[in-house]
Amino acid sequence: MKHTISVLVENHSGVLSRITGLFSRRGFNIESLAVGPTQDPEVSRITIIADGDEHTVEQIEKQLNKLIEVIKVRTLTKDECFARELMLVKVSCPAEKRSEIMTIAEMTEAKIVDVTLTTVTLEICARYQKLERFIEIVAPYGITELVRTGTIAIQKGSETMDRKK
């Protein structure tokens, strides 16, 4: 089962390697990982999508909490958060297919960010599952390059990571 784990950490050099090191040495699988600063310049937020059963996730949380620079760990359930991931896909696209791809883009709320004689580059920001479906749809045209940011997530409502409402 996939889990969305949000981690607030001190914005020190080396923190990320401590976290990824912990995952690999304890045999936890990372599906995706996204890092960035928060409203507090001294704090970064890491969103990890990890695979495992309940026991594994409990261990991940506890082991993360043991790292000195980890301020807060929270596993977010699907229902309590908004999750998004940004993807850029370059698809082979001769002139005669352009309108087809444009229609797909329109229907899926993807944006065309670049066009050449032979390719189209699309940008889409959505939940993980939607990106997977989008890939299925454009795959027949021939994906020449694909890049994803990894999922980020935020809680619904006024509650935040470090404060309950």
Partner: peptide
């Protein structure tokens, strides 16, 4: 004292 050891 280490919560991670409980149930590990």
């Amino acid at each position: 004292i280490d919560p991670a050891e409980l149930g590990k």
